[in-house]
Design a binder for these strands. Structure first.
Lengths: 195, 195
DNA sequence: CATTATAGTGACCAAGTGGTCACCTGTCAA
DNA sequence: TTGACAGGTGACCACTTGGTCACTATAATG
């Protein structure tokens, strides 16, 4: 069974994601865990300590899943394979509950916390672009894509995809539409850059 | 001289943008206006009423500046002119104080208020893309750009630009870098799609 | 068995919140 | 002159917030 310390963090992530740091309050958090408020203080010194522990866990989760070269997707053997790979990653990122919460927390708190600010740039901009930069470089080496600057290519690919993912987060009822637009964009992108 | 009613909204926009709806409080707002808290209630019924009035003003400002066909930029006569037009618009949007505040408010509150949610999609996604869609269509008609779906072209252009504008908002100390990357992207985009 | 550490409780506190109220003051019209 | 009114004030209220404290129960350990 999960330790109380971890249960607190899981529930706190939900509350911080929904209401922001200021909007989350310890009474509700304790109630959702069927604990008294003062019990929280047996595990963490303050609301801020919980906040930092939540961020630590978020960063550890990211590093474990996307942070190392071991997690790089295999270089596709065709452009259609690239399309499928991209669509799988997009679908995963808008469906995984933990990622959904993480994204929402980062978006709403990026201006109020320096650490979250850095995470926003990493998660939404440079991290994802870095992954696709390597994918595209590999595909160029295989002669599947026209020669180009892989970094620029990755940026011009991931930024539109990212904006549609944000649309899903913001307006879940338009998710199907957003995913369709994502697929259309990916196919358009491939049609332009395929060798 | 500006009426107190309007001064309240201007200052409230600043505080909502900095601290969010929940984080902004009426005592500070009144103090910054050299007013007593209860004076605010002579002009607005509640904090929520101030909030809605701020959103009204934001929407009116947007409609006045970007909402009608009269505000469409003239179709460029060359690709270099498109580059210059884009860079001017980017520079304006990361420099104008009112737009900076508006952007920040929309980003941080997009999940907490339905109206702000719609504004986010409009301002960051569909509004800007709509403008460039018409610009690109005009340039295609002039034979300056290769024939393509202007909507898809506009989306694949504005989304990366928008992500760099968000980077400026989040990390102002990296603004110069972000603007340089924006120029590089715009020139890359033009080099691909010029006829 | 006694002791000690851990996890939990509920009452309480101080500070901050949005909002109300009685009151004041100048302006302007009847 | 007088009365209505718009704009402004400070004291006050109820409620919420993060945090503390004395206390309890249980399990492990010398």
């Amino acid at each position: 069974m999960e330790s109380t310390r971890e249960r607190i963090l899981d529930e706190a992530l939900i509350m911080f994601a929904e209401n922001g740091y200021r909007g989350a309050n310890l009474r509700d958090l304790a109630a959702r865990l069927s604990l008294s408020k003062s019990a929280l203080y047996k595990h963490y010194d303050s609301k801020e300590a919980i906040w930092h522990a939540v961020l630590d866990k978020m960063e550890a989760h990211y590093a474990r899943n996307f942070g190392s070269v071991d997690n790089l997707p295999p270089t596709p053997d065709s452009c259609e394979e690239l399309v499928q790979l991209s669509l799988r990653m997009i679908h995963f990122t808008v469906s995984d509950p933990h990622i959904i919460l993480t994204r929402r927390l980062i978006i709403t708190e990026q201006f109020h916390d320096e650490r979250v600010c850095r995470m926003a740039t990493k998660y939404f901009l440079e991290g994802t672009a870095g992954i696709y930069e390597k994918v595209f470089a590999g595909m160029m080496a295989k002669g599947l894509l026209k020669p180009a600057d892989p970094a620029m290519l990755a940026f011009s690919f991931t930024a539109p995809v990212s904006s549609l993912i944000h649309l899903c987060a913001r307006e879940p009822e338009r998710q199907a539409e957003a995913l369709a637009r994502a697929e259309a964009f990916v196919r358009y992108f491939v049609s332009i850059h395929a060798a």
